[in-house]
């Protein structure tokens, strides 16, 4: 399986083609539109991360030795960010996820979206992803 590192490289390369912000955001928005819809049963209030600006839902399931995430948001740019975040951690082991830093977001120039002042729910989502990693460690089937 691809490592987290490989996937980061892919995304960084993908974003290196954009030399203006409009292309970058158009791409981010199309990622948001393509992100698989979360099944409604998983859009529970327990899975909801309340941001002041946009809402995020995150669901995680342990299969074999990997975590499968599903996430959604009411804002399309936040959905685009979710698509990027999940692409890297999807199906990785709890151990890897528990200590993962998501540094590639900085390399593609989208860190502002992970700043607490944006209040878009993503900061908490990143924390929550790691917490799932911690919680599922040692529980692998």
């Amino acid at each position: 399986m691809e490592t987290i590192g490989d996937r980061e490289e892919d995304i960084i390369e993908e974003f290196s083609f954009f030399d203006d912000w409009m292309d970058k955001y158009t791409h981010l928005i199309s990622l948001g539109k393509e992100l698989e819809q979360m099944i409604p049963e998983n859009k529970t209030s327990e899975n909801q991360i309340k941001g002041c600006q946009s809402q995020v839902w995150l669901n995680a399931e342990l299969t074999e030795n990997s975590i499968l995430f599903q996430a959604d948001s009411d804002a399309i740019i936040t959905r685009g960010m979710i698509a990027l975040l999940l692409r890297v951690v999807q199906g990785q082991t709890p151990e890897k996820i528990a200590s993962y830093d998501f540094n590639f977001i900085e390399k593609i120039g989208l860190t502002t979206h992970l700043s607490p002042s944006r209040a878009n729910g993503l900061v908490s989502m990143v924390k929550q992803i790691r917490l799932y990693g911690v919680a599922f460690q040692g529980k692998t089937k």
């Binding site: 600006q53 399309i76 979206h113 878009n120």
Partner: peptide
Amino acid sequence: SHPYDVGVLLDQMGIAVRTG
């Protein structure tokens, strides 16, 4: 469109508005 998306894109163009 969600107001957040509008605000983020306006900010890219130097426009400061409030959303939410």
